[in-house]
Amino acid sequence: MPLPATAPIASPPQAAFGDTIEILPKIFHDDTNLAVMRRQLDADLAASVAAQLAVDRRLDWRWRGGVGEALAEDLLNHLPRPSQAKPLVEDITLICEAMAYLFDTQTIGVRLQRLEGAMCPRFHVDNLAVRLVSTYAGAGSEWLPEPAVERAGLGAPRPGKPDPLRDAQSIRRLGCGDIALLKGEGWVGNEGRGLVHRSPQPAPGEPRLLLALDPG
């Protein structure tokens, strides 16, 4: 008598790292929920970032629309020191163009924020399909490899609910300047497997500058 067919057991999602942009399409692999292009900011870009943060002013720029001159002009108009912003604007525009090309979309949601505290301090997953994050200043986003995750602990805390973090020694952190694609729960076929991550707590007097992009 033949045995009943069983569904294949999905392997734990993996992370992919590289030093060139060719690593980012790895996010389309079924077994990959994090793709990271490692990079360090060059001197001109780092100086441009530092100039914007030297002004003690709130920065929370948001854009949803096409990628082009309008995006660059709007960003420039919202930065504290536009005369020193060219390298930063060019870098963000280039990343937006790459995101639009990779996901074949005409619309990008963009957010550039100065953060004095942890925006999402609890480990969580995103309900969207995918998000690109890059930290221009301060500590990079923290994430967990699958063996360190207790998924029953995700979501709003309540009495008796376990901690989503199984092992504090397993916390990983993206580097400043890294460009990372984080696959969420909204990616078709990735339900229950979205990357678990959180915002780090900035050091006192050292704000973060975070870029986040959503395609479509």
Score class of each variant (00 low, 15 high):
Met1Val: 06
Lys183Ser: 06
Gly175Ser: 13
Leu128Thr: 11
Leu181Ser: 02
Gly140Ala: 01
Ala100Thr: 08
Leu154Phe: 14
Ala85Lys: 02
Arg62Met: 10
Asp178Gly: 07
Thr93Pro: 00
Ala54Pro: 04
Asp126Cys: 02
Thr93Asn: 12
Ala203Phe: 05
Gly109His: 11
Ala35Trp: 01
Cys176Gln: 15
Leu53Tyr: 14
Leu76Cys: 06
Val196Trp: 11
Glu191Val: 06
Ala16Asp: 06
Leu213Met: 15
Gly68Trp: 12
Asp19Glu: 15
Arg114Lys: 14
Ser83His: 15
Asp178Lys: 06
Ala43Glu: 12
Val49Lys: 04
Pro202His: 11
Ala212Gln: 14
Gly155Phe: 15
Glu73Asn: 09
Arg122His: 12
Gly160Ser: 07
Thr6Val: 15
Ala72Met: 12
Trp63Thr: 00
Glu146Lys: 03
Pro164Val: 00
Gly160Asp: 04
Asp126Gly: 01
Thr105Cys: 10
Pro2Glu: 09
Asp126Gln: 11
Lys86His: 09
Gly175Glu: 12
Asn77Asp: 13
Ala51Tyr: 10
Phe28Gly: 01
Gln84Gly: 00
Ala100Trp: 06
Ser83Gly: 11
Ile27Gly: 06
Ser48His: 05
Ala85His: 03
Cys120Ser: 08
His197Tyr: 09
Tyr101Asn: 12
Leu128Tyr: 10
Leu59Asn: 05
Pro80Asn: 07
Phe103Ile: 08
Ala54Phe: 11
Arg172Met: 15
Val67Trp: 00
Ile21Lys: 05
Ala137His: 04
Pro121Gln: 02
Leu24Asn: 03
Asp163Gly: 06
Ser170Gly: 14
